[in-house]
């Protein structure tokens, strides 16, 4: 069996794992519902004013909700790796492919594909929800096609990278619930606190860099391309750490 064939078989096996449980479907459905709810809440509560909605910044503030739900893609990534430890199937995986680096590479790849699907759907729901609210409120859509495309691409890339980070995090921590809690606490609490203590440092941290990538209109964020590069570097660092730890770990 050639390396190419073995790699293809491994990828097919990882795809089969993903598609033969219901987890991913429910997580994506929850993700899309959250986006629509959060976006609607932002409009109805006045968190984004009608005046702002009529500007490009207002459109960006709405569309970035598609990316804020990327934590759900991260959870998909965590279940792809930590889920195997949770259910004990990791032993079977390493018995089929004893060299562990290709296993993790396949998982990163599968997570990226899942993140891409989730990202495209999330962007689409964010845009659709926004268009509905603009219509309902009778406000003119204050952004050109370029703004929409940049938000769409940025949010999708955000999901892809977060899903891959999720696999790495799950492989590092192994306990699925602990990995998810750690990610949520970091993204929504710890990073905000760290950024508050060291403002100039904050935008280089992963979750804040992700908002730059997602074309968020808030001030103090990195430009979109820079945010993407910084988040990609964080993702690569997590992946390298996951590979190193997995190669050294006993499966008991």
């Amino acid at each position: 069996m050639t390396g190419v064939t073995a790699g293809r078989d491994l990828t097919h096996s990882e795809f089969a794992k993903l598609l033969t449980t219901r987890t991913i479907r429910w997580v994506i459905i929850a993700e899309l519902a959250l986006i629509a709810l959060a976006e609607s809440g932002a409009v109805e509560s006045g968190a984004i004013s009608s005046t702002k909605l009529a500007t490009a910044a207002g459109v960006r503030a709405l569309l970035v909700h598609g990316g804020l739900a990327a934590v759900m893609s991260l959870i998909i990534g965590v279940t792809i790796s930590a889920g195997e430890y949770r259910h004990g199937t990791i032993a079977d995986t390493f018995l089929s492919t004893p060299r562990r680096t290709p296993v993790l590479l396949a998982k990163f790849w599968i997570a990226a594909v899942a993140g891409l699907v989730a990202g495209i759907l999330s962007s689409a729901v964010a845009l659709t929800t926004a268009l509905i609210w603009y219509s309902v409120k009778g406000i003119s859509f204050g952004a050109d096609d370029g703004t929409v495309v940049r938000a769409f691409v940025g949010v999708t890339a955000w999901h892809v990278l977060y899903a891959v980070v999720g696999v790495a995090l799950g492989a590092l921590i192994r306990a699925q619930s602990a990995a998810i809690v750690a990610a949520v606490v970091w993204i929504f609490i710890a990073e905000t606190a760290v950024a508050g203590l060291a403002v100039s440092l904050g935008r280089w941290l992963p979750a804040t860099a992700a908002r730059g990538l997602g074309y968020d209109s808030s001030s103090g964020l990195l430009p979109q391309a820079s945010g993407g590069i910084v988040l990609a570097l964080w993702t690569a660092a997590f992946c390298v750490g996951a590979v190193i730890v997995t190669l050294r770990r006993d499966v008991v």
């Binding site: 078989d9 491994l10 096996s13 089969a16 794992k17 033969t20 259910h87 089929s96």
Partner: peptide
Amino acid sequence: HPSRSGRNHLRVVARA
């Protein structure tokens, strides 16, 4: 995996 069918479990291993 408790929510995977027996046949799908075997298919996952067979693919690899």
